[in-house]
Design a protein around this nucleic acid. Structure first.
Lengths: 139, 139
DNA sequence: CATGCACCCTGTAGTAGCTACAGGTTCAAG
DNA sequence: CTTGAACCTGTAGCTACTACAGGGTGCATG
């Protein structure tokens, strides 16, 4: 029998997170021992691990669940999986690009600082210059 | 007199966000008209704009407030400002690096997909391979 | 058999930074 | 005088957890 602490060790999730997944219905309620403790099967450990890996790849819980459902499909909808993953990859790339623009803007601002002018140029910029920004939805 | 809707237009923040900043004490409570509507001064608009720009640069609210306090310092602590910004820049760079590792991992997985194997290789990988991940605190 | 300690349980509140109402008042134009 | 936009307060929801509080259980040691 696998207790929740062991499950945490096996999956890399925390005990609290596993309980949270159950509470939120992200995974099915685990079976209980006579005294009410959670008991996990190998299958359930695999599922938790699957979700953990999706999360580590930056998928949302929703995305992870979508992938899990696809993985259960009779003919394993590989094309659909690829679509989901590709869309997420695009998303990650957009985020990288956005952060790189940010990095550029910040680096320029910090640069002005090292030129030892009178009143802080970085602050002046923050008071006067608009900054481009965009929003990217998670997948 | 500048009403909240106008303030929103002037700063790029939403009306709800401006009210939220007030509620949370992030900015001082704005003055009111006789009928209880918020009335903003140019100074307050500048402050909101300052915070908005910090946020757009990826600073946390806390970071934005710290910068605002520095901007009020008698001798404009430019060195301190630079420190804060530089630390944040490092942070942004760490995030970019983390996302790039993610991108790499995802791209490899998606790549395996386009090779038309039998049971979806991406799913297989999610079921079997551990994924490296790290955590970065915001600034 | 008692004790102690690690582990487990449920339930609740907090995190960041908003967003989205509901249910009501006020202002300005026609 | 009516209509519609804009405003008000207050509360709940979002993501994905984390962190308790206050208790119960299981096992090894003395």
């Amino acid at each position: 029998m696998i207790a929740i602490g062991e499950a945490a060790r096996l999956t890399g999730l925390s005990v609290e997170t596993i309980r949270y997944y159950e509470r939120e219905g992200i995974v099915e309620k685990a079976g209980r021992t006579a005294s009410g403790r959670r008991a996990y099967t190998e299958r359930e450990i695999s599922e938790l691990r699957f979700i953990k890996r999706c999360r580590d790849l930056g998928f949302t819980i929703q995305g992870a669940c979508a992938l899990r459902e696809l993985s259960k499909a009779p003919e394993q909808a590989c094309r659909d999986v690829e679509d989901v993953a590709t869309r997420h990859l695009d998303n990650v790339r957009s985020k990288i690009a956005a952060l790189q623009r940010l990095e550029q803007a910040l680096a320029e601002l910090v640069q002005t600082c090292t030129e030892g002018t009178a009143s802080c140029p970085l602050l002046t910029a923050l008071l006067n210059e608009p900054i481009a920004k965009e929003k990217i939805n998670d997948t």
